[in-house]
Design a protein around this nucleic acid. Structure first.
Length: 416
DNA sequence: AAGGAGGGCAACCGCATGTAC
DNA sequence: TGTACATGCGGTTGCCCTCCT
């Protein structure tokens, strides 16, 4: 055991290495009595020959009463992979998605376990892309995939925000298997889900690192019975599905239009919530009819953005000054990313991306070419997309399930 | 039984950022 | 505005345990 001094607290005589039960007890007593307003004063208060930093670490990673401990569940593992794909090695942020888990724990689990699993699947754990030596196969092979390996046919080298909408008329039950080319983490165990007859396929994960923020996007799914109505009214492509840069007016007008369309469905209520102290917010369109209509930005980080954007004055007035500043800064960056995606995309695409839809009830399959719905992409070459389904983004095994239980019954979970 | 290898995990280190003065 | 100190984060280290030979 080291007994030498510490660079950050050389004035003190500090102990290092593993903590003894006696030390733990002293620290707990001290923190229960005094709280941890100032970590540097804790060692003295607790009678410990440790530096404040060491005390903080011990408390956060081990002694805190709300820690879960124990091995990670499959669901937690899925969450870590999903969030890591978006955020990279931001362990603290990843841990925020896992109540009772610490950044250190998540990091250790990643390094000791998940990383190896991904590599065994031929995926680069840093980028979640397919390692080139594994890039092979055919569409036929993908459709016949019966193991748990990811389905992909082509290595995604880059991707950027772009929404696509597929309108697929189905007879009930609307249970479909969806396969997407180029999705590096698609897994046959998670391909089956209930999805609306009309759904959006999005690509929103730039592969480039670092990714300070995910591009914003907002999506609304409309039941097939109403699809023609919205399409005829030019809502689907121009007013409903859009990047969120100018989303507030569109979202509001969308609610208004839907409620006044007189085609028989129940009125849609709009709700928004933002909780800056938790750094979580969400926006939601809801209907009393399940899966009738719902909206989401499709990723957790931009929920609060959308909520703030809809009613900026009202929402921001509830925020502390600091939070307002943070939101505004984030918004600026996110808008910048969105603008890059729309107007100054540095990426090249070709038209090789396809989506396979399989109706499980009938076994029918249907291969769809992408539909370009943004005029700014009209002359762009599409390729190398990393596709992601809106449903999986939101609710893939509950990544964002802790945001609001009220959204759960609106959203559709994977069979996992 | 001994000891070497490897994995898991707790803890440390250094840097970046925040805050108080 | 600049400085010093505190805090938080991610990368890394090294100890301990288990398994294998």
């Amino acid at each position: 055991m080291h007994q030498m001094g510490h660079h950050c607290c050389s004035k003190q005589k500090v102990k290092r290495g593993l903590w003894s039960p006696e030390e733990d007890e002293k620290l707990i007593k001290c923190l229960v009595t005094h709280g941890h307003g100032c970590w540097s004063s804790i060692p003295k208060l607790a009678g410990l020959e440790r530096c404040g930093k060491s005390c903080r670490l011990r408390w956060i990673n081990y002694l805190r009463p709300d820690l879960k401990r124990g091995s990670f569940s499959a669901q937690e593992e899925r969450i870590i992979i999903d969030v890591h794909r978006i955020l990279g090695n931001r362990w603290a942020q990843i841990a925020n998605h896992l109540p009772g888990r610490t950044d250190n724990e998540v990091k250790n689990f990643w390094n000791s376990c998940i990383k190896k699993k991904l590599m065994a699947q031929g995926l680069d754990p840093k980028t979640h892309n397919l390692i080139s030596s594994f890039t092979s196969g055919s569409y036929k092979n993908a459709c016949n995939n019966t193991n748990n390996h990811p389905i992909y046919l082509q290595q995604p080298t880059s991707s950027i925000y772009h929404p696509h909408q597929y309108h697929h008329q189905l007879n009930s039950p609307q249970k479909m298997m969806v396969m997407v080319r180029d999705h590096p983490s698609m897994d046959t165990t998670k391909n089956t889900q209930e999805i609306p007859a009309t759904f959006n396929v999005t690509s929103a994960l730039p592969v480039q690192q670092p990714r300070p923020y995910r591009p914003l996007y907002d999506l609304i799914s409309i039941p097939s019975t109403n699809f023609d109505y919205y399409q005829n009214n030019n809502l689907t492509n121009s007013n409903i599905k859009y990047p969120s840069v100018n989303s507030s007016a569109n979202l509001e007008s969308c609610v208004s239009l839907i409620n006044s369309d007189n085609i028989g469905h129940k009125p849609i209520s709009y709700s928004s919530l933002v909780d800056p102290s938790l750094d979580i917010g969400f926006e939601q369109f809801s209907s009393s009819e399940d899966n009738c209509i719902w909206a989401s930005n499709g990723n957790g980080e931009s929920f609060e953005e959308a909520a703030v954007e809809v009613q900026p004055t009202q929402q921001l007035s509830h925020c502390k000054e600091k939070d307002q500043k943070n939101y505004q800064e984030q918004r600026q960056e996110q808008e910048y990313v969105s603008m890059l995606a729309l107007d100054e995309s540095p990426f090249k695409f070709d038209e090789s991306v396809e989506v396979m839809i399989k109706d499980i009830s009938t076994g029918d399959t249907d291969k769809r070419d992408q539909i370009n719905s943004l005029s700014s992409f009209n002359n762009t070459n599409f390729s190398n997309f990393e596709f992601e389904f809106m449903d999986s983004t939101i609710m893939s095994c509950g990544i964002y399930g802790n945001m609001s239980s009220s959204t759960d019954d609106q959203l559709i979970a994977w069979d996992c």
